[in-house]
Write a protein that binds this DNA or RNA. Structure first.
Lengths: 202, 202
DNA sequence: TTAGTAAACTGAACAGTGTTCATAATAATG
DNA sequence: CATTATTATGAACACTGTTCAGTTTACTAA
């Protein structure tokens, strides 16, 4: 049986979710640069100050939006089915899903990995999605096909590669890119192949 | 013999340079986030409006600062001596210099490649520094050691890789990174090796 | 030297931003 | 119904980039 306090907390939680939803639609409609606390208040038909009763600041709202966006990424990565005997194919599928996610959710991606935090002093723990990538690398290492056995290092290097192409696509959409699909395919191939112990192509 | 008009233009040019210099020192001292037109005016001991007689807007100032920063990068890349018989080593040196430059000039780098332009509709032509990278890739392709002969695509893929690690280091300095030097070394190695036709290690 | 013109400069204002706080409206409780 | 919490808000603070009507300075022609 829920107490009154529990109910209060429930209401408070629902209100927070409503605020986050409206914030999300503003960003999806007009981009993250157009998102402001005042516009959010206008959308919610309340005073800007009211929002601060539920969130400490703007960054906290964006952080929570990014958080739920990345839960979606984790979910997608988990649905990629893992075949024991094909760790490389599995890894490549994960990388592809990561890039696709970043390009789809470019506003959230940009805030997460292309914006300097205001408090850059506190340590940052990797998201679950990153651990999934690490595990995929781990299976490759354990299969004995990678030159390096430093799982942490290899994962971070691979992550940097896919982050690179994702973020450049986002920030420079008008750069004279090669045919995107071909470029992404090639990118994933070479960054995985580069880690192989020995490589015989075709 | 310079006319009066030439002299006027010279003075105007010098004044612009002075403004840029002060802008640069503010950024170096307090970071790009702290840089504002009003603070620049304070530093120059003039009205904020005065700056607008020499620059159209804040972005133009930042663009010109970034431009000269990247000329410095071009210069550095040019000083790397090219040995005809070692195209791979040459390419790797360029990649290393690029990363080092990005980490040193992280504020300029961030503005250049990690910030969405306000006018993202106009086409963007690659900087000279990028062409140097392309040429390095070209020599590798012409040496017949790369699997793909699509110079444009390979260059962009490699660029994305080094941009990835550079930008992640900048934006997530407190991420639990592997030992930086080892990670960079490995990163450059695998991203180049992945492009090789055949790979026999050690 | 002086009057008139052109160039250079600026204070104030506009329209925004994130955030805070005393006050007012509302809801819950004794 | 009166009192106490809770919730909401208007106004303000301290910023931001940018514009523009005036003012000051510099240059030119008489």
């Amino acid at each position: 049986m829920p107490t009154f306090k529990d109910k209060k907390q429930q209401i408070r939680h629902d209100l927070k979710q409503t605020i986050l939803q409206h914030a999300s639609t503003i960003i999806q409609k007009h981009g993250i640069r157009q998102f402001s606390m005042r516009k959010l208040a206008l959308e919610l038909e309340c005073s800007p100050a009211t929002i601060y009763l539920y969130f400490n600041n703007k960054e906290e709202i964006l952080n929570q939006l990014v958080e739920s966006a990345f839960e979606e990424l984790s979910h997608r990565l988990k649905t990629i089915d893992f075949q024991e005997d094909q760790p490389l194919a599995y890894l490549k599928h994960i990388l592809r899903a990561y890039i696709d996610f970043g390009l789809e959710q470019h506003d959230h991606y940009q805030f997460a990995f292309m914006t300097s935090r205001t408090k850059p002093n506190q340590p940052l723990q990797p998201h679950e999605a990153f651990h999934i990538l690490v595990n995929a690398v781990k299976t490759c290492v354990e299969a004995g096909i990678f030159i390096s056995t430093d799982i942490k290092m290899v994962s971070q290097s691979i992550w940097a590669c896919i982050h690179g192409i994702t973020s450049l696509f986002i920030v420079l959409p008008n750069f004279p890119w090669s045919e995107k699909e071909k470029l992404i395919q090639h990118h994933i191939d070479i960054l995985v192949d580069g880690n192989l112990k020995s490589l015989k192509r075709k």
